[in-house]
Simulated assay, not measured.
Amino acid sequence: MPGPYEETAPAVAGGGPGPPTLRAPATASPVASAAPGTSPSRDDTIEEVLTSFYDYARVRGSRDRILTTRPHSPRDEQRAFDALHRAMTRLRTR
């Protein structure tokens, strides 16, 4: 699959692989890593929006799961939503 996302297969209760899911790589935001004084490209901004959306969906979805590796607090969910909102605002103003 092209792009920055990797396909993973989480384990399920029976020990076999579960359905594939997309996981964003653990890297810094492309917009945050842009050189000082330069404007990030539109593609970098779009990538940041997608990464922020993935993070928000992951945090939001974890509260409904029974077996999670780390429960997320409402504060984590709000931080992820705020990051998504900021990224979308940057995209709109480009």
Rank of each mutant, 00 (worst) to 15 (best):
S39M: 13
A57M: 13
Y54M: 05
V31C: 13
P36R: 12
R58C: 08
T45W: 01
T21S: 03
H72G: 07
T45C: 12
F53C: 07
D55L: 09
R79L: 11
T51M: 14
S62N: 08
T69M: 05
T21I: 13
S29I: 02
R75S: 06
F53D: 00
E77I: 14
S73H: 11
A24T: 07
H85W: 06
V31I: 13
G61T: 03
F53G: 05
T38D: 11
T38K: 09
P36E: 05
Y56I: 00
L22H: 02
T45F: 00
D55N: 14
A35W: 01
T69A: 10
T69H: 03
V31P: 14
D82Y: 08
G61N: 03
A26E: 15
A34F: 00
V31R: 10
Q78L: 14
A57W: 09
A26D: 14
E47C: 00
S39N: 10
A32Y: 09
L50P: 00
P20I: 08
T69R: 05
A24N: 07
E47P: 00
D76N: 14
P74M: 06
S39F: 15
T27C: 08
D43W: 06
H85Q: 04
I46M: 11
P30G: 03
F53P: 00
S73Y: 07
E77K: 08
P20K: 02
P30I: 03
I46F: 03
A32H: 04
L50H: 05
T45Q: 15
D55V: 08
Y54C: 01
P40W: 02
R86E: 10
H85A: 01
G37Y: 01
R63Q: 06
D44H: 07
Y54V: 00
P40A: 08
D64N: 13
S39Q: 15
A26I: 09
H72Q: 12
D44L: 05
V31H: 11
R65G: 00
A32V: 03
H85E: 02
V59Y: 04
R23S: 13
S73N: 08
A80L: 09
H72L: 03
A57N: 07
R23W: 15
D55H: 14
S73G: 04
P20V: 04
T38H: 12
E77Y: 07
H72T: 06
A34K: 07
A26P: 08
L84W: 15
A28N: 09
T27S: 11
